[in-house]
Amino acid sequence: MMAAVTVVIAGQRNLFAVVILGGIYSFLMATVLVALDAVDVAMTEASVGAGISTVLFLGALHLSKSEEMKPLHKPFLPLLVAIATGAALVYGTLGLPAFSDPDAPIHRHVAPRYINDGPRETGVPNVVTAVLASYRGFDTLGEVTVVFTAGIGVIALLRRLRGRGKGERS
């Protein structure tokens, strides 16, 4: 189903349809993440990917034309690069341990400590929250700073453009 949505997105020239299909793709992705027991990530994907970014794309679409331009070049070179990258990634997954293998390296490093000691040390039953906010507090601080920087960047870029636009009009 996700593959079908992707193919339709690639073939679609109407950007409005592309935005809506992108939202649908995000919701499908969220259901996949729920199936993988990553409920926190699924919630983020549904709210950010399907919700906010769809609205922002629509806002951007309102400012521009809603039909994609005809491509200037033949798409074969990008297609080749995409297929080569995809093949390399698929080849890489062959080296990964089997799905839900308890002896995989990722399950033997710090994960047992988080799962076994996390609820006792932090009193928080949700391990994701415990890791995110407590054990990996510095990382999350960095993430918040990244979000903050993105916001500042948008303000810096768009506010100047808006001021210039007003100057031209008057």
Partner: peptide, 9 residues
């Protein structure tokens, strides 16, 4: 803020 900026333009 991003929404305000996009929509306001």
């Amino acid at each position: 803020k991003i929404f305000y900026m996009f929509a306001g333009r």
